[in-house]
Simulated assay, not measured.
Amino acid sequence: MEMNFLAILVAAVSALVVGFIWYNPKVFGNAWMHAAGMTEEQIKGGNMAKIFGMALLFALMLAVTMPVLVIHQMGAMSLTKGDLGELQSYTAFMADYGDAFRTYKHGAFHGLLSGIFIALPILGTNALFERKGAKYILINSGYWIVTLTVMGAIICGWR
């Protein structure tokens, strides 16, 4: 099973698109600024090329790991394919389940679970030690839950 690098790239870019919408002042942008203790001057004073470049790099790193979370066949491949070559068990598994659960809906479901059970606890823990409130946690983790849902859908469904 080969990785779909175009799907991974599109999934990475989707993180920026979701962020553009999510953190827009008409959506959660103003509430996030207030919860984060940021001002318009602080936001405008940042090196936006560096910020968006690094955000895209981080999204790309995340998108590369998503196939193992949202595509069941990747797990089968990791168990049965390796130094020994392709084992009969992998060939048999792929013959029976080759495209099973390879849908946008299934990928979105696993992306959603990844957001809730991976991103939320990480961001929530950091925010607690930073003494940020529930609104800060909900806005930022909500962004990652939606983003991982979209990424999972793209990566799992796009064959």
Score class of each variant (00 low, 15 high):
29 G>S: 10
73 Q>L: 10
52 F>V: 09
65 T>I: 12
115 G>K: 05
61 M>K: 11
94 M>G: 01
112 L>I: 03
31 A>Q: 03
77 M>F: 11
92 A>N: 12
54 M>R: 13
75 G>I: 04
27 V>F: 14
145 I>Q: 02
114 S>D: 03
124 G>K: 08
89 S>V: 04
93 F>P: 14
69 L>W: 14
145 I>D: 05
61 M>L: 15
66 M>E: 04
34 H>R: 15
66 M>F: 12
109 F>H: 09
112 L>H: 04
67 P>R: 06
140 N>R: 07
30 N>Q: 12
124 G>L: 05
62 L>N: 10
37 G>Q: 04
24 N>W: 14
22 W>N: 08
85 G>K: 00
139 I>K: 03
85 G>H: 00
146 V>R: 02
55 A>K: 06
33 M>K: 15
22 W>G: 04
131 R>P: 04
151 M>S: 12
88 Q>Y: 03
136 Y>L: 11
121 P>Q: 07
71 I>Q: 00
100 A>Y: 15
87 L>A: 10
48 M>F: 15
78 S>K: 11
68 V>H: 07
85 G>V: 02
55 A>Y: 05
147 T>D: 09
101 F>K: 00
45 G>I: 10
116 I>G: 14
133 G>Q: 02
62 L>M: 08
112 L>R: 02
22 W>K: 06
23 Y>D: 01
